[in-house]
Design a protein around this nucleic acid. Structure first.
Lengths: 169, 169
DNA sequence: TTAAAGTTTCAATATATATTGAAACTTTTA
DNA sequence: TAAAAGTTTCAATATATATTGAAACTTTAA
């Protein structure tokens, strides 16, 4: 028995939220994002409150956060006073944007600290060697991962687009 | 004024724990891992309790979790009754292992659900189209990312090793 | 076989994080 | 300029997650 669309949507939203919590992302933020992803039309605060059964304050905070992440934009409909919200629909852009933001917010500060710790003076102990090589390893690894990510964006953009366009039409 | 080694170690451990929480990883688990990473010699439960100022139960649970993730192994020292613990020191292996585990534990179950949701019958609405293309996009994207990850492991292993060996010796 | 050494478990508790909702704001329009 | 429509804030509260510690369990050595 195939799922009804409405049932499938609910499953998507709730599971996406549960999934997000494993990755350090607020459940509700992920659910609001999922809801906006699968709706062609922009939604207003009331729509989101109703569909996710959450408070106005909660909607406001999580939408703001999503806007901050550049995943959602405010939409004004002419003749309407309310604000509406709409999500970037292209998954490629969404993922790229998330990686970029997390790099900026979490990886870069961490790397700055690692580079400071690299400066600790060599006291010739075994422990120094282990410490130094852990830090060096993390820095080297991060820099390589970063370069790879940049290459990836360029190399696969064309591939992804070709497939994405083929797929959605 | 350069940092003392002991101070640098503490900074590394506490910041690594804080960092981990942004990625859905338990703070203490990350700290135990950091502690074992920068110690040449295996540590026992008491050592960890003392250095991180946490309870025996907490040590036990987090060490078990790390073993489960294949990041730490139990070590028996001849003539000693206690168990000791030691972490995989090669950062490349550590990261690869973490990605593999998270893929298995989180991404794969999510993809199975997505594939189920793909089967929802086409009701010809705008909403159906948006829903379908979101799900299709996620699946396509994940599959591509997966392939890229596999290629990466092979392509960069030699590069990374060359650099890692040069660096640590 | 038993007591000492060590490990594991898990209910109780503490801590961190998310959510509510009502009051304080900020437009807008009559 | 007043009040209606809408948005934002944040202290209080609820929920989720992590931690403790003592009891139960397991293993080892005398």
């Amino acid at each position: 028995m195939p799922l009804q669309l409405s049932e499938a949507k609910n499953q998507f939203i709730s599971n996406w939220g549960a999934f997000a919590t494993h990755w350090g992302i607020n459940k509700t933020m992920a659910q609001v994002h999922a809801l906006l992803l699968i709706n062609t039309k922009p939604l207003c605060a009331e729509d989101i409150m109703e569909q996710l059964q959450i408070s106005r304050g909660n909607v406001n905070m999580n939408v703001r956060e999503l806007i901050d992440w550049n995943l959602v934009e405010r939409i004004t409909i002419v003749g309407e006073r309310k604000e509406y919200f709409s999500a970037e629909k292209d998954i490629w852009k969404v993922v790229t944007q998330i990686i970029k933001e997390r790099k900026k917010r979490e990886l870069e500060p961490m790397l700055r600290l690692m580079k400071q710790l690299q400066e600790v003076p060599n006291d010739k102990t075994e422990d120094y060697k282990a410490f130094k090589s852990t830090i060096d390893g993390i820095i080297k690894y991060s820099e390589q991962a970063d370069k790879t990510f940049e290459k990836l964006i360029k190399a696969e953009e064309s591939w992804f687009w070709a497939n994405f366009i083929k797929m959605v039409k």
